[in-house]
Design a protein around this nucleic acid. Structure first.
Length: 572
RNA sequence: CGGAGCGUAGCGUAGUCCGGUUAUCGCACCAGUUUUGGGAACUGGGGGUCGCAGGUUCGAAUCCUGCCGCUCCGACCA
C-alpha cells in the first residue's frame, strides 16, 4: 500500500481525551476515531488490524468444528423475555424506541431459537456454532477507548450437547482454542476461575491480560499455578481463635461512630479482627417479601458481593441506607447480629469468624455497639461461608507462595451454561430411548477490539506501537528518504514491487516533499516490525538500511540482499 | 447512579472570576521561495453558529436559567 493512496491520518500529540496507552496510540496512529462516548469509527489501518484478529478467530473456531453464522443485531423483546434476561439485564440493553425490539448485547437467545426447531434428535448433537458480530451494551460509563465501548465486535460461540460429558468436551476444545488464539495474537495472558454473573451456569473461566489499564483485579500466586478473579479468589487466611472467656455481652455508648476505623480508634485497638463488620441485603423475588440477609465479616476484611450473589443465585441486593432503620433498627454504622429488628433475617458470617467470641458489633440502635459477642453462644442460627475478598500477600490456597493482586483486562470468557437457556426456551431433543431431554449449552466469547487494544497495552514504547507477528497490519515500512533524487525513488519503486512479489505486505511511504524526520516518526508510531530505509547517502555505496522497530537495531545491507534479509528478519 | 472537570477554527488552547475595538496563540491547511537522514525556515493567505436554547443588558465567549455532549474518579464496605 502506498501512503499517498492510503487514508492514514496520524497525530503528533496525545489526544486530551485519551488516558490509556492503547487508546492514545490507536487514535494517534490513525486506527480509530471517536464518534461519541464508547462508540468508534474504525479507519483503514484499524480495520486491517481487527480483520487480522478475526482471521485468527475464524481459523481456530473452524479448527474445532465451528460453523460460522451471522445473526442480526436486532431482536424482538419477546425473545429476550423468554429467557428472562430482558429484565435481568435492565438498562444494559439498548431498547428501540419505535418498535418492541432490542439491540442484542449477546446472542444466546437467537442461537437457542435456531437450535430449538433444528436440533431435535441426539443424532443432531453435538454442534459448535459461532459468529463474529457487533454487540451493543449500554454501559453506564464507557472508558479507555476500545477497552469498554457501547458497540464492539465479539466472537461468540455456542456449543449444544446431549450430555454433561459432551459439554465438558466442547468446553475443553474451546479452552484450548482460546489458548491458541491468545498465543497467536502475541498476548501474555493467563486464565482465571470467574464469577458467572448474569450469564448463569456452573463453571466459567476468564482469560486475562495483565495491564495497568485493566478494570479487573486478579489474584495470582508467585508461580502462576493459582489465578482467580478477586470476585471468586480464595486464600489461606487464619480463623479468628476463640478466647473462651465466656463474658456476657454488653451494650455500650459509641457516639458518632460510623465506621470500623472510627470504632477501632474509639476502642484504642489496632487489631480489627474482633470488630465485626455488618452489611444488610434484601432477598429479592416475588415470594421473598420482607426477608433479609445480615452479612458479617471481620473488621479487617471486605465483603465480597460477587461471592454472595453466587451463594444466593443472584437474588439479593444491598439495602438502601434509608431502608436500614426500618429493617435493622439503626442506621449504617450501628448494625449487628444481636437485636436485629426484623426477625425474618438470615445471618451469614465469613469462615474466618467461625464460632468466634469477644466480638464487637453494632447494637441495631444508633450510637450503640455491643461487646463480648460470642457467635456460637449468642447467634445460634448463623451460617458460615466464604464471603470475603482475598488480600495481597495471603497464602495461595494450593500452598504455593503468596497472592499478588494485579490489574488485568478480560479478553475472553467461557461458560458452561448448562440448561438455563435451553430450559427457558424449550430447546429439547429425543435421546436413543425416545425420551425428551433439555439440550446442554456452553457459551464462549472473545472481544475482537480488546485483543488488539491489549496487544498495544503490552507492546508499545514512547514512540508508538510495536507490531510483530500475526496482528501487524503490514510487514514492512518502506521509507523513501530523498524524494528529489531519481535513483532513490526508482530504487524504492523496485523494492516495493519485489517485496510484494515475495508475499510481503508493504506500507510504502512514497509521499513527496515530506521531510525524513516526519516519515521516521510516523513509521515508529505505526510501528511495523521492519523498516526499510532508502536514502541517497547509503545508496551511493549500494547499501540500504534496515531497522527493527522493537529493538531499534539498524543494519546496512547490499541492495541485492534486502529482500532475503527482510524475509529472514520476519521469519517469512 | 454519586462526585469532579471540561465544551472557543481540523487538533491543542488564551480570554470567562471583574461584560466593552475586528476573539488569542501554536500545530495543521492553501500559495510562493529556499530547504531535504529524526516531526524545516521565511513571506503571504483561508478558516469561528465561542456546545444549544432562553434571559439580563445600550452591549454577552464572559452574567443568570434550563438543556445537550465529552472526560476522569468512585460504587452503598455500616
Amino acid at each position: 500500500m502506498r501512503l499517498t493512496k492510503f487514508f492514514l491520518p496520524t497525530i503528533k500529540e496525545d489526544p486530551t481525551e485519551a488516558v490509556v496507552a492503547s487508546h492514545k496510540l490507536m487514535i494517534r496512529s490513525g486506527m480509530i476515531r471517536q464518534v461519541t462516548a464508547g462508540v468508534y469509527s474504525y479507519l483503514p489501518l484499524g480495520k486491517i488490524v481487527f480483520d487480522k484478529v478475526e482471521k485468527i478467530l475464524r481459523e481456530e473456531m473452524n479448527a474445532i468444528g465451528g460453523n460460522e453464522f451471522y445473526l442480526p443485531a436486532l431482536a424482538p423483546n419477546e425473545l429476550w423475555a423468554q429467557s428472562g434476561r430482558l429484565d435481568e439485564y435492565g438498562d444494559l440493553i439498548f431498547r428501540i424506541k419505535n418498535r418492541e425490539m432490542v439491540l442484542c448485547p449477546t446472542h444466546e437467545e437467537i442461537f437457542t431459537s435456531i437450535a430449538k426447531p433444528n436440533l431435535i434428535s441426539y443424532k443432531d448433537l453435538p454442534q459448535m456454532w459461532y459468529q463474529i458480530q457487533n454487540k451493543f451494551r449500554n454501559e453506564e460509563r464507557p472508558r479507555a477507548g476500545l477497552l469498554r465501548g457501547r458497540q464492539f465486535t465479539m466472537k461468540d460461540a455456542y456449543s449444544f450437547d446431549a450430555t454433561w460429558e459432551g459439554l465438558d468436551e466442547s468446553y475443553d476444545k474451546q479452552e484450548q482454542a482460546y489458548r491458541n488464539i491468545f498465543t497467536r495474537s502475541g498476548l501474555k495472558f493467563f486464565s482465571v476461575k470467574a464469577h458467572s454473573g448474569a450469564m448463569g451456569g456452573s463453571e466459567s473461566v476468564e482469560f486475562m491480560v495483565e495491564a495497568a489499564a485493566g478494570e479487573d483485579y486478579v489474584a495470582v500466586n508467585d508461580d502462576g499455578s493459582y489465578a482467580a478473579n478477586v470476585e471468586v479468589a480464595v486464600s489461606i487466611a487464619e480463623v479468628t481463635p476463640r478466647k473462651d472467656t465466656n463474658l456476657a455481652y454488653e451494650k455500650f455508648h459509641t457516639p458518632n461512630i460510623k465506621s470500623i476505623d472510627e470504632l477501632a480508634e474509639f476502642l484504642k485497638v489496632d487489631d480489627k479482627s474482633r470488630l465485626a463488620k455488618s452489611r444488610v441485603f434484601v432477598i429479592t423475588g416475588e415470594d421473598k417479601k420482607d426477608e433479609y440477609l445480615l452479612v458479617l465479616v471481620r473488621g479487617d476484611d471486605e465483603v465480597n458481593e460477587a461471592k454472595l450473589q453466587t451463594l444466593f443465585g443472584g437474588g439479593i441486593r444491598p439495602a438502601h441506607p434509608e431502608e436500614l432503620p426500618a429493617i435493622s433498627g439503626a442506621d449504617a454504622g450501628s448494625i449487628g447480629p444481636i437485636g436485629f429488628k426484623n426477625k425474618s433475617v438470615k445471618v451469614v458470617a465469613d469462615l474466618r469468624l467461625q464460632d468466634a467470641d469477644e466480638l464487637v458489633s453494632g447494637a441495631n440502635e444508633n450510637d450503640y455497639h455491643i461487646k463480648n459477642i460470642d457467635l456460637k453462644r449468642d447467634v445460634p442460627e448463623i451460617e458460615y461461608k466464604d464471603i470475603r475478598v482475598v488480600k495481597e500477600g495471603e497464602g495461595s490456597i494450593d500452598g504455593k507462595g503468596n497472592l499478588r493482586l494485579v490489574k488485568a483486562i478480560e479478553v475472553g470468557h467461557i461458560f458452561k451454561l448448562g440448561t438455563k437457556y435451553a430450559e427457558a426456551m424449550g430447546a429439547k431433543y429425543l435421546d436413543e430411548n425416545g425420551k425428551e431431554n433439555v439440550i446442554i449449552m456452553g457459551s464462549y466469547g472473545i472481544g475482537v477490539e480488546r485483543i488488539a487494544a491489549s496487544y498495544i497495552e503490552q507492546n508499545h514504547d514512547e514512540n508508538g506501537i510495536i507490531w510483530e507477528g500475526e496482528l501487524a497490519p503490514f510487514d514492512v515500512s518502506l521509507i523513501c528518504v530523498n524524494t528529489n533524487k531519481d535513483d532513490v525513488v526508482n530504487t524504492c519503486e523496485e523494492l516495493y514491487k519485489e517485496l510484494q512479489s515475495q508475499g510481503l505486505d508493504v506500507l510504502f511511504d512514497d509521499r513527496m516533499d515530506v521531510r525524513p524526520g516526519f516519515k521516521f516518526a510516523d513509521a515508529d508510531l505505526i510501528g511495523l516490525p521492519v523498516h526499510v530505509i532508502v536514502g541517497e547517502k547509503n545508496l551511493k555505496d549500494g547499501k540500504i538500511e534496515i531497522k527493527l522497530r522493537r529493538s531499534g537495531d539498524r543494519m546496512l545491507v547490499d541492495k541485492s540482499d534486502v529482500i532475503s534479509k527482510v524475509k529472514e528478519l520476519l521469519n517469512k
